[in-house]
Write a protein that binds this DNA or RNA. Structure first.
Lengths: 155, 155
DNA sequence: TAATTCTTGACAAATAAAATAGACTTTAAT
DNA sequence: ATTAAAGTCTATTTTATTTGTCAAGAATTA
């Protein structure tokens, strides 16, 4: 039972954006450098997060990505959902019941109830944590903020 | 974030054993037939569960497997632990910190705390459910018990 | 128009999950 | 003792998923 790197990288990247947010959109190359994630791969993840409504983007010079809501309105659960596709411990408790691999014991299975309850509890917790919480934590533990290099020249 | 089939099959199989328990050891072929799991694959899973201390076995004719503790003393968490090897949402919160893929941000990472707390909550719940609870559920929903075919001839 | 940045879809390598197979050992019953 | 019915051990194979790379394209700003 492991979370894929898409979720882990996705959360790290969005936290990074929230923590280092400036007036200009954040660029892949900066985020990937700070978080040590392959820029090409991060692009892909950001497309998923865009489709999930968490990110918006602007092309062209000085373009980049920005959060589509305030950090305290973006939960970890939403990020995982967008990155992972769906968040279920086992297939048989997926919400969109159009899942192909339906188990032949569906709905008359005592183990299904366990997986469902476990998934719910997990989701409850992950829904209770927002990007703002992470930023507060980071600040509390004294994590440095990097200045936007695009401003460096004017100092 | 999915649980592997080893855990799902493992739980189903152990529940099956607890629910249909008789005086003789339960045999792979019966469990696999009732639960529709490949017998050869179930053998493998049972080896893991044996190593995890949940099962014991007797060889030879009329041999088979039996639970090494009472159903109310076997938790779902223990089963997953034995089947899955280790139960962690992400590598960086594994207990046996000898994990190779240590993240370079270890211990100074705000996302790590989230994964750790989520793993803990999940484990807390799964540790609170035992095989006996599953049997009670099954009984309550009227699931049929199969008679042991090895007794059939004497009826 | 030129440079920069995101967009899209295809592709490939690596890893892990799932299942199958065969030779072997132990045990109970006869 | 012999035999047949179990479990045991270790490979191997197959399949699916994850992870990551690449290249051509489209939008935007300066």
């Amino acid at each position: 039972m492991r979370l894929s790197t898409k979720s882990r990288y996705g959360l790290r990247a969005l936290f990074d954006m929230a923590y280092h947010a400036g007036t200009l959109p954040a660029q892949i190359k900066d985020i990937s450098r700070r978080q040590n994630i392959s820029p090409r791969y991060l692009e892909q993840i950001f497309q998923d997060l865009k489709r999930g409504g968490l990110l918006k983007s602007r092309r062209g010079p000085q373009g980049g990505y920005f959060l589509s809501r305030k950090p305290n309105e973006i939960t970890v659960q939403q990020i995982i959902m967008a990155a992972e596709g769906e968040m279920a411990l086992v297939d048989c408790v997926k919400s969109g019941k159009g899942c192909k691999k339906e188990c032949e014991f569906d709905n008359q299975c005592v183990t299904q109830k366990i997986w469902l309850e476990a998934s719910n509890r997990l989701n409850d917790y992950l829904s209770s944590v927002t990007l703002k919480d992470l930023c507060d934590d980071a600040k509390a533990m004294g994590m440095e903020k990097e200045l936007d290099h695009r401003f460096m020249y004017f100092i």
